[in-house]
């Protein structure tokens, strides 16, 4: 499908060196809507919605704040720890959006899956259904993510 001007503007902002060093698309050459669509189908097939997943990530992130950057065991199942950095990053989609720079590291102690995300990842998933392009540093594979946080 042809790239619309709005989608092109968003993808331009997602390139390396614009908002972050590595950008959000990795080595994925597909259009944004194709990237989002494929992940939406995966998420649906697994019986979830991107909104549900985002809310779950937000819950775990909020709970981890209780430990002020130290590890915390949440619900006897998730070992979560945050690293908070100086500054905020802008959402490349066309709306207001500044997100704290942080890395949230989670280990599901039942199945051993470890995964990391950023506050911007949560917003991308919950609001835009965007798990980032393949090869992107902060790409979250929906299946792995679901196994880790549920």
């Amino acid at each position: 499908m042809k790239l619309g001007p709005e989608e092109k503007r968003i993808m331009d902002k997602m390139q390396p060196g614009i908002l972050t060093v590595d950008g959000f698309l990795g080595n994925d050459n597909r259009n944004l809507h194709d990237i989002i669509q494929e992940d939406a189908e995966k998420v649906e097939a697994l019986g979830y919605t991107a909104e549900d997943i985002g809310k779950r990530m937000q819950y775990l992130t909020e709970r981890s704040k209780e430990a002020y950057e130290e590890p915390i065991l949440i619900d006897q199942k998730y070992l979560v720890q945050q690293d908070i950095w100086r500054g905020k990053v802008v959402c490349p989609f066309p709306h207001k959006g500044l997100y704290v720079k942080a890395d949230i590291h989670l280990k599901n102690i039942e199945n051993g899956i470890e995964i990391s995300w950023t506050p911007l990842n949560i917003h991308f998933i919950e609001e835009h259904g965007f798990f980032e392009g393949k090869g992107s540093k902060h790409r979250l594979d929906p299946e792995t993510l679901i196994k880790a946080i549920y």
């Binding site: 060093v21 590595d22 500054g87 720079k101 890395d103 540093k137």
Partner: peptide, 11 residues
């Protein structure tokens, strides 16, 4: 200045 992972300025 502390390094911020993926940060344009601190990199």
């Amino acid at each position: 200045i502390r390094r911020v992972p993926d940060g344009l300025c601190t990199t």
